[in-house]
Computed example of a mutant assay.
Amino acid sequence: MTEARRRARVFCARFGLGLPVLQAPMSGSSPPELAVAVAGAGGMGAGGVLRDSPRRIAEWAEEFRAGSSGAFQLNVWIPETSEPDPAERQRLIDGARQFLGGFGTPGEPGGPDPPVFREQCEAMLAARPTAVSSIMGLFEPDYVRRLHARGIAWFACATTLDEALAAEDAGADAVVAQGMEAGGHRGSFRQEDAERAEVGLFALLPRLADRLRVPIVATGGIADGRGLAAALTLGASAVQVGTVLLRCPETGTSREWAAALEDLGPEDTVTTRAYSGRLARAVRTAYVRAWAEPGAPRPALFPDQLRLVGQWRRGTTDGLDRSNYWAGQSAALATEEPAADVITRMWTSACGLLPG
């Protein structure tokens, strides 16, 4: 058996999987139905709980378990520890508000209050998933100990070797190596460094594999068996996929967003802060392009930009995307098929490419 196959087999045995494919925990695009379908194919389902209350986290886990006894992860963002300068923060808000005025009339301000991070963490403990995963930072040591005491693994997203080593030292059971090709938000620990640290997955993987002791889960631009086989060959034990599942019926992606992914070239995705204030890869829509034009202001910080965009979406606007069109660079490989078929085909194809 080759080393690549051995790593995948060990990872699958440890976490109760039939094949080394994890669903990306996409906040707002990870309904229990999708996780059930992925787990049913032998992979690991996922829920992104960034916007979820403790009650909704518990309900999501119950709905998943009603349809599957398989493995699943729950994912949350780590809050920033430093407060921005109030005057600078307000300056960015004012500039973003004025710029958004060019897209129409805003609706009422407000929206639901964001959930409390510590309460979310307690709810994830109570849900007892296979793994709890983090992005944009590390959990506190006490929380890691509590996870492990309940038999819950911790998967930590990292975009650089320094971040990966810090996660390993902090007790992570696996590192999710996120390449710049990935759709959605960048996992950089320091948001001000996110643009500088845009490293491609196949450059990042060998660098991590040569230094880490814990398993690596590769994510970013993987959408078929070729990418899966390549990731395992370069040192990963499993892969995590998101964009390739966005057109699956179980995901519930809006018709407009799904249509934007069809035959989308890698060059037609860009990293932007225009939706949330944090760097993320999305479709290069007219709205996203506008924020990159000369003279356009820098988007407000998170969550201010997110709230402002939400306010304008509640109003009467023209040219503002009605949802965040997240997309990885392999979006063109996404198909309108059941998620189980996508996952199964990926692994079957990879097996045909990997040496025995």
Rank of each mutant, 00 (worst) to 15 (best):
V342A: 09
G45V: 00
A218T: 03
Q191S: 13
W60D: 04
T233L: 04
T253M: 08
N75K: 04
C121H: 07
A334L: 02
G45L: 01
D94P: 15
C157L: 14
T271Q: 12
P20F: 01
G171D: 05
R226W: 02
A158V: 06
A229M: 04
R255A: 15
P297M: 07
C248V: 10
G48S: 12
G319A: 07
D210R: 15
M136N: 08
L92V: 12
L204S: 06
G352F: 01
S133P: 01
G137A: 07
A153R: 13
G40Q: 02
G28V: 02
T130S: 09
R9A: 14
G104H: 05
R226M: 07
L308C: 09
V244L: 11
A230W: 00
R9S: 10
V132G: 00
D142P: 05
D113A: 15
D263Y: 06
A282N: 12
R14V: 01
A156F: 04
P86G: 07
E192L: 09
T159W: 03
A209C: 11
Q329D: 11
I57P: 03
L232T: 00
I93D: 08
T251H: 04
L245A: 04
A230S: 09
N324Q: 12
V199M: 12
P141N: 10
D263H: 13
A153I: 11
A24C: 08
G235Y: 02
E108Y: 02
E267S: 08
T233V: 07
E88V: 15
D173G: 10
E140T: 10
D94Y: 13
A37W: 01
P54T: 06
H185Q: 15
S254A: 13
A66Y: 13
R213N: 09
R55I: 05
R9M: 04
A87L: 11
Y325L: 14
A4R: 00
P294H: 14
S69R: 12
W77Y: 13
D304H: 15
A167S: 09
A332K: 11
G104P: 03
H148L: 08
Q73P: 02
R211A: 14
T348Y: 00
L201C: 08
V342C: 12
E140K: 10
R14F: 03
V49Q: 02
P355S: 10
A339R: 00
V76F: 04
T130Y: 04
A58P: 06
V175M: 10
G235S: 12
L246P: 01
A87N: 05
A296L: 12
H148Y: 10
P299S: 00
D321Y: 05
T81V: 14
E256R: 15
S30C: 13
L204T: 06
W257Q: 06
V38M: 06
A292F: 08
R247Q: 14
Q191E: 15
P297E: 08
L19P: 02
E262M: 08
Q98K: 14
G171S: 04
E33Y: 00
A96C: 13
R91T: 14
Q240K: 11
Q120S: 07
L92W: 14
M26Y: 05
A296Y: 09
T160Q: 06
W291T: 01
G101K: 03
E262I: 14
A334G: 05
